[in-house]
Amino acid sequence: MDILYLLIPLSLVLITLVIGAFLWAIHSGQFDDLEGPAHEILMDKDDIVPPKSIPPERHQ
């Protein structure tokens, strides 16, 4: 019976952390586009221009 004095507050803290992490994920936009990354694999990226090479820095 004494273990309930430990487990009940511990479970409430854990539930609060899980709900907080879920709400943070919703507000930060983690669930906005669920299909985009799946379709991005199928897209051909030949039309993307590679970045220009950066010239080496001069040593002074």
Rank of each mutant, 00 (worst) to 15 (best):
R58W: 11
I15W: 02
I3E: 14
K52P: 12
L12D: 03
D32M: 03
P55M: 01
L12N: 03
M43K: 11
P37Q: 06
T16V: 05
P55E: 06
L23Y: 03
D46P: 11
G20A: 14
E40S: 13
A38P: 03
I41Q: 14
D32T: 07
D47V: 08
L4H: 12
D32I: 01
P9W: 08
P37E: 08
L4T: 01
L7E: 03
F22R: 14
S28Q: 10
D32C: 01
L14V: 11
A21F: 15
D33Y: 01
G36D: 04
M43W: 08
P55R: 05
I54G: 02
V18R: 15
I19R: 08
M43R: 14
I3Y: 15
Q60T: 10
A38M: 14
L12K: 09
D33W: 00
I26P: 00
P56S: 01
P37L: 04
G20Q: 09
V49L: 09
K52R: 12
L23Q: 04
L10R: 07
I54R: 04
G20C: 07
I3G: 00
L34P: 04
Q30D: 08
L6T: 09
L4G: 04
S53L: 10
I48R: 07
P37G: 07
I8P: 02
V13I: 06
K45A: 10
I15P: 03
L12E: 08
P55V: 05
D46I: 07
S53N: 13
V13Q: 01
K52Q: 11
L6K: 13
D2Q: 09
L14S: 15
S53G: 13
H59A: 14
L17V: 07
D46Q: 12
I48E: 05
G36P: 03
V49I: 13
P55A: 02
D33L: 01
Y5N: 11
L34Y: 01
I3N: 06
L42S: 14
W24Y: 14
G29N: 06
D33T: 08
L42F: 14
I41Y: 15
V13T: 00
V49C: 04
L4A: 13
G29R: 12
I26C: 08
D46G: 15
H27T: 02
M43D: 11
K45L: 07
D46Y: 07
L12R: 10
H59D: 12
G20M: 06
L23R: 06
V49N: 01
Q60V: 10
P9T: 07
L10G: 09
D32H: 02
P51M: 02
Y5T: 02
K52W: 00
V49R: 02
P37R: 05
I26V: 11
D44Y: 00
K45G: 11
F22W: 10
P51G: 04
G36S: 06
G36W: 00
A25F: 01
S28N: 10
A25K: 07
M43Y: 11
T16M: 05
F31D: 02
H27K: 12
L6R: 11
P50V: 01
L14Y: 14
H27F: 09
V13D: 00
V49A: 08
H39F: 04
W24N: 14
